[in-house]
Design a protein around this nucleic acid. Structure first.
Lengths: 233, 233
DNA sequence: CGCGCGGTTGATCAACCTCAACCCGCGTGG
DNA sequence: CCACGCGGGTTGAGGTTGATCAACCGCGCG
């Protein structure tokens, strides 16, 4: 999952309607920020498609440590990684509209609704790729690199064409749990990025990238010291 | 992906044969240890199913850092996370037998071969779940916990019923790159586990769990100090 | 014999964590 | 109106974990 931009715009469109007498996809359903769509361990009776807003997916370890395994926004499919029970908890971080599909419809879906099935297959493949990318980030990068990678991903997801402002809808603690850091570390690095003129936080949840190339350099393993800043500028 | 135990035993069996004039799955193909099945960036013209042996999947960051995103053995499907190009490199860590399927067969697979498609869907869902679990391990656990989790996963994958010996086919460096540690750290912790009587390394690549419950405690976030060892024994 | 590869061990160091104080904006209730 | 508490964030001081760098071992092999 990770930062999984969606592809499925019309998962309940003509193709799937053709399936006939199956349980239909629900109409858009509102969920407000801080509410959960489901918890780890719940029976997975439905899968969800995000229509608008942001959710986070996370797991809780026995000792209370949490790991956010992904943020998802419009177009993402939630719950396909699970079988009988949900493996992740899913909490809305903004107000959200979701559509859901009964899990029963997944049985024999390839026969009954090949168009939908193929979309789901592509979407889950994308999520797997994103999860693996996130593994690389968490496992092999420093705190600074992680944050740079993260900001670029979010900016990309928000489809920021050039360097205008974009939403950073999650709290510092969510970012930290996603990146495998402490929120203090995230906070420090954010202010550091700002002090160096790489980003500008217009509010706590609103950000602009001033030096995208420096962040890109960093994210890919560059040094990003001041000398490099000049070179690459 | 991650430590992805397989489910698909007969991916080329009767169900898929029925597809008729499609390009057939290749017969078993031998690959020896250290050879690559494919590299990151290669065009993805085939997907693979592991029949025997072990492979690792990894990504290389620009600065040469590598992250192993998964180990896979018999039954795992490789390459579905990618679209046109492979996102991971795949290297055999033991001698391996793989079967492959032309990627072209994935187009319209749900219509043409629903049985195969549904198996792949389940398998990739499992891999996504495993990748998320690995995210939690790498992101939220200490070196000791990571190693404990890892040993238990491998032992589980090798289907060790009780506490007999099992294969640990990868090198220390591979474990390190999987767990987001340095190989020196892995080495130290391994000898430490042994010194504490939790495991026994009969050879570098052969291991026995002597105190599985202690490792389980550790993996789940317990303290595993000597007091606890006695309590849980 | 010498070399290279994989692994182990030791000493040092820094990145990040931990704990704690503090700030700010906001809603509530006296 | 102000006091208060609370949630979320920032900042600081000091400690630990795991990285780094380097030496060394054992083994297989040309």
């Amino acid at each position: 999952m990770c930062i999984a931009g969606g592809m499925i715009q019309e998962i309940h469109g003509a193709g799937s309607r053709a399936a006939g007498a199956m349980a239909p996809a629900s109409p858009g359903h509102e969920v407000s920020a801080r509410e959960h769509l489901f918890f780890e361990g719940d029976v997975r009776d439905r899968i969800y498609i995000v229509e608008s807003g942001w959710v986070k997916l996370y797991r809780t370890l026995i000792d209370g440590q949490r790991q956010v395994v992904g943020f998802a926004n419009s177009g993402s499919v939630l719950g396909i990684e699970s079988d009988m029970l949900h493996l992740n908890s899913c909490e809305a971080i903004t107000d959200v509209v979701v559509r859901s599909i009964p899990a029963s419809r997944l049985n024999g879906i390839c026969k009954n609704d090949p168009a939908l099935a193929e979309q789901i297959l592509r979407q889950i493949g994308r999520q797997l790729g994103a999860a693996q990318a996130q593994l690389a980030t968490i496992g092999a990068q420093s705190a600074e690199q992680k944050l740079a990678t993260f900001l670029l991903s979010i900016a990309h997801l928000c489809e920021v064409s050039l360097d205008q402002e974009f939403d950073l809808p999650m709290r510092r603690g969510d970012m930290a749990e996603f990146l495998g850091l402490r929120l203090e570390t995230v906070s420090r690095k954010m202010t550091e990025f700002q002090r160096r003129g790489w980003i500008k936080l217009t509010s706590l949840y609103h950000c602009r990238l001033l030096q995208r190339h420096v962040l890109e350099e960093l994210a890919q393993g560059g040094e990003a010291d001041s000398a490099q800043m000049l070179r690459t500028a």
